[in-house]
Design a protein around this nucleic acid. Structure first.
Lengths: 357, 357
DNA sequence: TTGAAAGCGCTAACAA
DNA sequence: TTGTTAGCGCTTTCAA
């Protein structure tokens, strides 16, 4: 009663080709597994003739080492986690879109990739914006899925640095941790950068200067603010009106409007990042103020929007790619020599003059 | 130029605590390794009492499974490669900075991450912009470092899709491959999107319309261009002046200048992406043309710059995050059921009206 | 339901 | 210089 089965379509059948192993190569080359292993890993002390024979066998058979097996012994994965961690209050999707809208993270990725690939290591991207996500990241790392962690915290009081140190996992941060944790980091001399901006605004003749700050629970935002105020005080301007933003363009635009209402005769603006400076530019244009003729604007970061905006932004450059590359370098150092104490590097900012000031 | 400073760092002594293994847990709980394994992996058929005992032992001892050992048997890593591949001509650093300046890639990452994390999988970021880099990616994958590949090609005739299929590695592409390769992908109905733009420009009264195209060796750019021209032809405008850009803002600005010189009375612009549309906006402002009063501008993608630019861009939305999430979904399907033929999904674009048209 | 035993594929002592 | 041998820590038949 059985209807004859129609044969399955002649689709490219997925034959599991049973990947060749060291054993197979060894047999074909007529040597031991150990010797093959040595050749494959480029260890010295192997007869050139045998080396050649092994190589031929490898090519002939299409051998590729299995990295799980290798990792099991070497305790190395060739991967590092690149984790972006938040405060733990936001919504997942909001956090994601904010993180990835900000050109900052792209620059971090770019810098990290640049340094890592030369060492044949690869970054695994992870988000740790909630407590649960953080636990997942932690357990992922504890399982030995990565050789170390590059951590970018977006908010203060992030518990992750402490947890990583506690777990004995190599890690390096972007930005000095809020809480004192014995861990390496790269950072910028934010106060110096803010001073550069203040000095420049004064130098080009501004007399009524205001600032748009970032969220003041973020250390970098605080330091930029403090540094700016301090420098202005030294120039005899101890009272600098300020409005707070949250590093987004919209928040910068809103802050600028508030400041225009509050200080109608302002002639200089320092924004704590370029995105907000860009927003300020929009608000100023909307208010009919010409930049830089009537109002000068200085941003911070020198992100891609700085050069792209019109007028192009004068800004304080933070060498993010270079910092990220250094972060990777510090991590690899630590992975290579676990005994070594954590190192940190602080970078100096530079003023980049464009059209806005 | 930065002169990195090195602050002194406190020392943290590295204790190598010899991670506990299944064996340790088994001994402590008084059961066999197999039983512990079953409990840890949530297999049924384990006495609740024993289950509890094992769990306690796990907690007491701080056991975490070693994923290299696990992968060796399961042949799963929990990682997928997210590779961005280029044509193979550019410089490494240039490619990196271009890739990561474009908000498009950030959106891809965001969408991928959103889908993957729910399945406890993680993306490993890789670039394959040169032949050498491509080989590295390929060997990384062949070594079993990832369970599959999500591939975003920036250029036509990318050999990687073919190589992946040939190697029997599960993969899904963003955008249909130029060469015919039996592989799954997600894509947008670009022509339909371009038609949306054309219909809108006509509907709002434009009579002298021009386009800024992307590089025409990129399929998406071609389809947007063709779709636009076709739709304009149906509206009785078979000859649409066009200038070519390369998807960057600067190239859009330059293209717009050329078009202004060539077609001084133009009153409508369709740019093949938002970045170029933004550049066009700048060129138009510079030329003293008011948008949208004198010239209407429509972009493509609805990337973050579209809403951020002033005037905000009317644009054709490409649901990149959703597409990327689907790409991840298709890949996981394929990883779970290797026998299954590749699936693809094509998304419909939507016109997003803002201020520029 | 549990345990014993056999590897997964590789590297690294240790001998030869 | 090469081979032998022992695992790395885990999952998974197969019996009990």
């Amino acid at each position: 009663m059985d209807a004859p089965r129609t044969p399955d379509a002649p689709v490219a059948v997925p034959i599991a080709p049973a990947a060749p192993t060291l054993e197979d190569v060894a047999r074909l080359a007529g040597v031991s597994r150990a010797t093959v292993s040595r050749v494959v890993n480029g260890k010295r002390n192997v007869d050139p003739a045998i080396q050649e024979a092994v190589r031929q066998a490898v090519d002939a058979i299409g051998y590729v080492p299995n990295s799980a097996a290798r990792s099991l012994i070497t305790r190395r994965t060739g991967a590092v986690a690149l984790v972006v961690s938040g405060a733990g209050e936001g919504e997942e999707e909001v956090f994601r879109s904010q993180v990835f809208t900000d050109p900052f993270f792209s620059r971090v990725i770019s810098g990290v990739l640049g340094h890592l690939r030369a060492r044949m290591m690869h970054p695994v991207l992870m988000l740790a914006e909630t407590g649960q996500a953080r636990d997942q990241v932690l357990s992922y790392l504890r399982q030995g899925n990565a050789d170390g962690t590059l951590l970018v915290s977006t908010h203060a009081a992030d518990p992750l640095p402490g947890l990583l140190v506690e777990a004995g996992l190599p890690a390096v941060l972007f930005a000095r941790p809020e809480l004192s944790v014995p861990i390496g980091f790269v950072d910028l001399a934010h106060q110096d950068g803010a001073r550069l901006a203040a000095d420049h605004l004064i130098a080009v003749g501004c007399r009524r200067v205001v600032t748009i700050s970032g969220p003041l629970d973020v250390r970098a935002a605080r330091e930029r603010q403090d540094g700016f105020r301090e420098a202005m005080a030294r120039h005899g301007e101890p009272l600098v009106p300020s409005a707070q933003g949250n590093f987004t363009q919209d928040s910068g635009e809103a802050a600028m409007r508030r400041l225009l209402a509050e200080v109608p005769d302002l002639d200089g603006v320092f924004a704590a990042n370029d995105l907000m400076a860009c927003g300020a530019l929009h608000a100023l244009r909307e208010a009919g103020r010409r930049v830089p003729q009537e109002v000068r604007v200085v941003g911070f970061d020198d992100s891609s929007v700085a050069a792209a905006s019109r007028p192009a932004l004068t800004t304080v450059r933070q060498p993010v790619e270079e910092m990220a590359a250094t972060m990777a370098k510090l991590l690899l150092e630590r992975i290579d020599e676990p005994g070594r104490p954590p190192r940190s590097v602080i970078f100096d900012p530079v003023l980049v003059r464009r059209q806005s000031a």
